[in-house]
Amino acid sequence: MTFWERVRLWPLSILVSVREARLALQALPFVINWNFLRTEFWRRLLFSRRDAWRLSRDYYSGQASSDVHCFGETPLLTLARIQRRAGINAGDEVLEVGAATGRNCFWLATVIGCRVVGLEHIPEFVSRADSVVRRIGCQEQMRFVCGDMEESLPGKPDVIYLYGSNLEDDLITRFAQRCCEKGEGVRVITVSYPLTNYLPGAFELIDAFPAVFTWGVTTVYVQRIVRAA
């Protein structure tokens, strides 16, 4: 990135930082959990020398991507709202597609009690998240898989979560098809768009509600698979 590109992005980065700080303060009641704080200690330590934004940017630069600044994580305050509205409970197996640093997976496993699988295509994210899992000894409750959501979705999830608000239509359609391979009754949560627009008749929309992300407010959709592939 050139100097002048950094200058143009500076006001936006300040706005995002302020919003992230506010969301982090509001999420404090949801993170006061010893097991989750243990995962946060190791996660932050492992990303302290080279943070997630830089790792993501470097990866996409190496892939000659047109958008190298596409990294983003669901604020924990928003994740807690999604968990309540979608009825995600202890004992559910949750698959997060695009797990990034694994923070959502760690929260769902340690605070809610879910079994969790994180699918992520950036190898460095997967290796560091795996390192956290080994350090806290929760291999039976969560795991991370390096892979592409277009090819297959791992595990036997009760719930699938995808935070990918700027994906191309063809990719969303292929994701919807992969979801349907998991069978009827699986809940699929998407941000900014319902899958009913991509595979008509395959999904039943069961809830839609506004949610806050670092870049603004959008709609979260909860749908159920009613026609398996």
Rank of each mutant, 00 (worst) to 15 (best):
L162I: 01
V68M: 09
V94T: 07
P29R: 08
C180W: 10
L195H: 05
E124S: 12
K156A: 06
G98K: 09
L162A: 03
R227V: 05
L162E: 01
I206D: 14
L25Y: 08
E124N: 08
R6F: 14
N33G: 01
W34D: 12
N166V: 13
D51M: 11
R134W: 13
A229V: 03
R115P: 11
C138L: 15
F30P: 13
F209E: 08
Y163D: 12
S127A: 11
V132M: 06
S48G: 12
L79P: 00
F36N: 04
V18F: 05
W4A: 15
V191N: 15
L199Y: 05
T190E: 02
N89M: 07
D207A: 13
R8K: 10
L199E: 00
S152D: 10
S17Q: 07
V191Q: 09
D148P: 03
I189A: 01
S165A: 14
V222G: 09
T219G: 10
S13I: 15
A100F: 01
V132P: 05
L28F: 10
N89K: 14
C179R: 04
R8T: 12
T218I: 11
N104Y: 13
I206F: 09
A52Q: 04
L199Q: 01
Q141K: 09
L199I: 05
G98D: 02
V126F: 03
P29T: 04
S56I: 00
A129W: 06
L95D: 08
E168W: 14
T39R: 07
R84G: 07
G147I: 01
A202T: 06
Y60S: 06
D130F: 04
